[in-house]
Design a binder for these strands. Structure first.
Length: 656
RNA sequence: GCCGUUGUAGCUCAGUGGUAGAGCACUUCCUUGGUAAGGAAGAGGUCGUAAGUUCAAUUCUUAUCAACGGCUCCA
């Protein structure tokens, strides 16, 4: 038979040759590293015989699919170790994930604590050294059901229910047999280094009404050094955690007394927010948005009308009431209904549309206590919200303009690794959504087309839509690889109906506008969290809450330092004077640690010459400069940063 | 909300069934120093909160609150 390799070369082998044998025929070194093989696009065990002409790609640790197979096999090893160590353990599923693997385990009521992980790791390594092969076996459904019935494993039996007879395979390594599609690495000996990272609860089949299993997360490597490197990487990532940096840099804080999930913005953090808001507001003004302001509470009726009350009201913050009349008000959970009412304050002509109402609106949502997470998931946050009211024929164009704006914001702030996600309905559960089928389809189509026409690479996720409409979401990863939604753009045909929004068309008839909800940052809180992790606290100069530190050599120069500082402040340069009774080396060290972009050292020489000695963070001494020169130099740097942003964004020629 | 872990000084953390300790930060004094930590002294905690066991609890038990890792959820 002919085997076609990835480089296009074709080799001849007798039928029944395995991938491993093919590898061996190429080189012994390669054969030693083969974890699995991709046969006609499907991942196979390296030891599985190939019976006909095929394309073949040998998978090693350098292939994502190779890693995947490796980790999946390690999950089986974990299960084997657990079965050897504990009585009555039952297994859910144990897949490979982006970094490592997990296995969901039912310990039959006994609790499993993190202290036990080491013991399990040791057992796994012991079993790995036995170099037990992973043996594939095709079984009939009947056999499979019998095996797991006898083993008394309800989870595997349930999984079997969903499988077709004739497609079922078992894998065995050592004494452990698992229902598994495969594929696997040749034997456990490949697994040289592993670490069980944490233990968590996970609902069986992701359903919170069902049994909660113990999920054990881990990672493994073919070399000990790689594990070490990975753990170092994890440590490094933890140093970027916005919760840690935010505390260190005095940007924000939480207080038990104020309440969980309610961030307190400290002066420096507030400064940062303000800069970001100004930045976006400028861009939005150019793009034809108008700022509005609405109150933090709204009558319950407002949300009954919008449909939010029905959808979220019961398990949310409960209404507050007026003392005498007992009127009900809700803490504002979103701004759109308010904006609808602004739209309704007067009749509109088709000539006025689109109308774009923007607001940095602070909203409050009840989030389950276990969900709160630093600034990325909070109960009170400020959206950089806006609602565009437009004619149906303007939807796509408006949508594309918003995409431009979002991309501009991301680019200006250096976010390159984002995913554009088209969030559509869960087609199996349409009851979750309001509105008629035609409008949904129309909205979903418009989003997809707008994204395509903008050349955005998108991934489609079903079940991620809002209850009133589909979304285009911009997802970004945090320091620890968790995915968060930042920007979002949503087409909405429902709210205009519910609020009976209208405009008068050219035909002098009443028509219904379409709404586009959008937020490039998503929320100030989450955006700053991700930005902070992204730049590891080293903000661009224009954003830096403290741009300069004036460092007098000694007390004698405090007066000059103060003069200098006043002058810089007049020029909108932010910072502080370090008047502590410390040596200059110490002041420099502390300023470096505080990530201050510029340190201005002043002593006798500088005072005499009306100059400053400049030290740039991370770069060291830049020599001295006249004060006026420094101001120019500094402003040029800031302008350059801002100019780069502008180049990145060609605002739609005056909005309409 | 659910499962697991944690909770000691402003921060990072050690420690003990007999009412607590380090480093950094802070205060005072000495020092007036030229590009990544000058020296000395001092102050600071009812050991998350509430009950229980005990002669005695920060330490053991239970409850509760919060944080952390996940799951579920996310307008």
């Amino acid at each position: 038979m002919n085997i076609t390799l990835p480089d296009g070369s074709v080799r001849q082998y007798p039928a029944g040759t395995t991938s491993l044998e093919v590898a061996l025929s190429i080189s012994e070194g390669l054969a030693r590293n083969v974890l699995a093989a991709e046969v006609n696009g499907e991942v196979w065990d390296a030891a599985r015989p190939i019976s006909q002409d095929s394309s073949l790609k040998l998978l090693t640790w350098n292939d994502d699919k190779g890693k995947n197979t490796f980790w999946h096999s390690t999950a089986h090893l974990l299960a084997e170790a657990l079965e050897a160590l504990y009585q009555n353990v039952k297994f859910g599923i144990g897949p490979a994930i982006e970094n490592g693997f997990y296995y969901d385990v039912d310990f039959g009521g006994q609790s499993f604590s993190t202290d036990e992980l080491e013991k399990v790791e040791a057992k796994m390594l012991e079993l790995a050294q036995q170099k037990n092969p992973y043996v594939r076996k095709e079984v009939s459904k009947k056999e499979a059901v019998e095996y797991f019935t006898q083993k008394n494993d309800p989870y595997k039996l349930e999984l079997l229910e969903g499988l077709q007879d004739g497609t079922i395979t078992f894998y065995q390594q050592g004494n452990f047999v698992d229902l598994c599609r495969g594929s696997h690495i040749p034997h456990t000996g490949f697994i040289k280094a592993l670490k069980l990272l944490n233990v968590a609860g996970a609902y069986w089949r992701g359903d919170e009404k069902r049994q909660q299993l113990t999920r054990i997360y881990g990672i493994s490597f073919p070399k000990a050094q790689e594990l070490k490197d990975y753990l170092t990487l994890l440590e490094e990532a933890k140093k970027r955690d916005h919760r840690k940096l935010g505390k260190e840099m005095e940007l924000f804080a939480f207080s038990e007394k104020v309440g969980m999930g309610l961030p307190l913005w400290l002066p420096k953090g507030a400064m940062l927010r303000e800069r970001l808001q100004t930045f976006l507001q400028k861009a939005q003004t150019k793009a034809g948005y108008q700022q509005v302001v609405t109150p933090h509470i709204g009558s319950k009726q407002l949300y009954v009308t919008s449909g939010h009350y029905e959808k979220y009201g019961k398990d949310s913050f409960q209404p507050i009431r007026t003392p005498d009349e007992n009127e009900e008000f809700l803490l504002k959970p979103m701004n759109c209904p308010h904006h609808c009412e602004i739209y309704k304050t007067k009749p509109h002509s088709y000539k006025e549309l689109p109308i774009r109402l923007a607001e940095f609106g602070t909203v409050y949502r009840y989030e389950q206590s276990g969900e709160l997470h630093g600034l990325t998931r909070v109960r009170g946050f400020t959206q950089d919200d806006a609602h565009i009211f437009c004619r149906p024929d303007q939807v796509k164009d408006e949508f594309k303009k918003v995409i431009d704006l979002v991309l501009y914001v991301f680019k200006a702030l250096g976010f390159e690794n984002f995913t554009a996600q088209v969030s559509l309905r869960d087609m199996d559960n349409k009851a979750k959504y309001i509105g008629n089928e035609d409008l949904w389809e129309k909205a979903e189509r418009e989003i997809q087309e707008a994204a395509d026409e903008k050349g955005l690479k998108t991934v489609v996720e079903y079940g991620e839509a809002a209850f009133y409409g589909p979304k285009l979401d911009f997802m970004v990863k945090d320091a620890l690889g968790r995915r968060w939604q930042l920007g979002t753009i949503q087409v909405d045909y429902q709210l205009p109906q519910r609020f009976e929004l209208e405009y008068t068309g050219a035909d002098n008839q009443k028509h219904r506008p379409v709404m586009i909800h959008r937020a490039p940052f998503g929320s100030m809180e989450r955006f700053i969290a991700v930005l902070l992790e992204h730049c590891a606290g080293n903000f661009p100069l224009w954003l830096s809450p403290e741009q300069i530190a004036v460092l007098p050599i000694s007390e004698k120069y405090h007066e000059y330092a103060q003069e200098l500082f006043n002058e810089l402040q007049m020029q909108d340069i932010r910072g502080f004077i370090d008047e502590r009774d410390e040596k200059i080396g110490r002041k420099i060290r502390d300023a470096e640690m505080r990530k201050i972009p510029f340190m201005l050292v002043v002593g006798e020489k500088e005072q005499a010459e009306n100059a400053v000695s400049i030290r740039k963070k991370g770069e060291g001494d830049l020599g001295s400069m006249a004060v006026s020169d420094f101001v120019n130099y500094f402003k040029e740097l800031v302008n350059k940063e801002l100019l780069n942003q502008m180049e990145a964004y060609y605002e739609p020629a005056l909005a309409k």
